[in-house]
Nucleic acid binder design. Structure first.
Length: 292
DNA sequence: TGCCAGGGCTGGG
DNA sequence: CCCAGCCATGGC
């Protein structure tokens, strides 16, 4: 482990930002709460974030004079109200926003986001975190850390994953997802998929580019399009969102998958992805009813 | 213990 | 287009 010679702090000036909701809402998997702080890794920097009245206090393990890597990741320039007021005025969304106003979308690094969500299929969030911790420890670069007890590794590059064996990946508890992650890494290393060029494609073409990868269907593609590339219309539909749509918007009869797709594509407005994140977090965190 | 998890692929109606 | 079964693994 490398002890840092110098550390830096910075105040991200922002309001209407619920750090707890944002970092625990299943869009990024490398954040851990420590009391009032959140510790995690962005790129190759270990960082601790603390909510303050004037914004978010950041403590980086390495000396740092320029902080755009952090403000870009947090999307702190976004004026949340401009987004919330585009939502349709309905009860489910009103309740969701009231429950966790200040929930934001992050802007993550594409490869890490893609690999993470390939690992996510039929896994609970705690298990996804566990898998990602394992591959970072096994393949990632050790980082500068604030003290002897902290731990931190960079997310392994596509080249590092491409050079590993399926058995090594399976030993990180990936199961049947291991060959998918490896194939995605190899496609990137071989130049068959250029993630940075996907960023500038129209939404449907970008989605089509991602779903060429084995193990990447519409849901995972939409996660990458929303959480890494910032396509505002991307609307991942997982089991929680499916439950929300059926309970809250189609309580009478079960809509067909095709009808659901048409609904989400037309109903939620220009920031459908944000609406999706509010519904997701609301469904996952609201107190269970009728448990007697 | 059995059910379910931020799914996708394949093969059948 | 729709559906069932399968994939690997662990939390609850």
């Amino acid at each position: 482990m490398i002890a840092a010679a110098a550390a830096s702090t910075f105040l991200v000036s922002v309001h209407d930002y619920d750090l707890d909701a944002t970092l625990s809402s299943g869009q990024a998997f490398r954040w851990r709460r420590d009391g009032n702080n959140w510790e995690g890794v962005i790129g190759e920097r270990w960082v601790r974030l603390t909510p303050e009245p004037a914004g978010i206090r950041a403590f980086a393990a390495e000396s740092c004079t320029e902080w755009s890597w952090l403000t870009h990741y947090l999307q702190s320039e976004i004026v949340l109200d401009d987004i919330l007021k585009t939502f349709p005025k309905d009860l489910p969304l009103s309740e969701s926003v009231a429950a966790c106003r200040g929930l934001r979308l992050l802007r993550q690094e594409p490869w890490e986001c893609l690999a993470s969500f390939i690992c996510s299929s039929t896994k609970q969030i705690v298990q996804i975190q566990q898998i990602i911790d394992l591959i970072c420890q096994r393949f990632g670069k050790p980082l500068s850390l604030p003290n002897q007890t902290a731990r931190g590794f960079g997310f392994p590059s596509a080249a590092q994953i491409a050079g590993s064996s399926e058995a090594e990946l399976r030993s990180c508890k990936m199961g049947f997802r291991a060959p998918y992650v490896r194939a995605a890494a190899q496609a990137i290393v071989a130049g068959e998929l250029d993630l940075e060029s996907v960023r500038s494609l129209p939404y449907q073409e970008a989605r089509n580019a991602l779903t060429q990868l084995p193990g990447v269907g519409e849901k995972i593609a939409n996660c990458v399009l929303l959480f890494a590339f910032g396509f505002p219309e991307a609307f991942p539909v997982d089991v929680w969102i499916m439950k929300a749509l059926r309970q809250l918007y189609f309580p009478k009869r079960r809509p067909t998958p095709a009808r659901l797709r048409r609904f989400v594509a037309s109903y939620f407005g220009p920031h459908a992805g944000y609406a999706q994140q509010y519904l997701f977090h609301f469904m996952r965190t609201r107190r269970r009813v009728n448990v007697s």
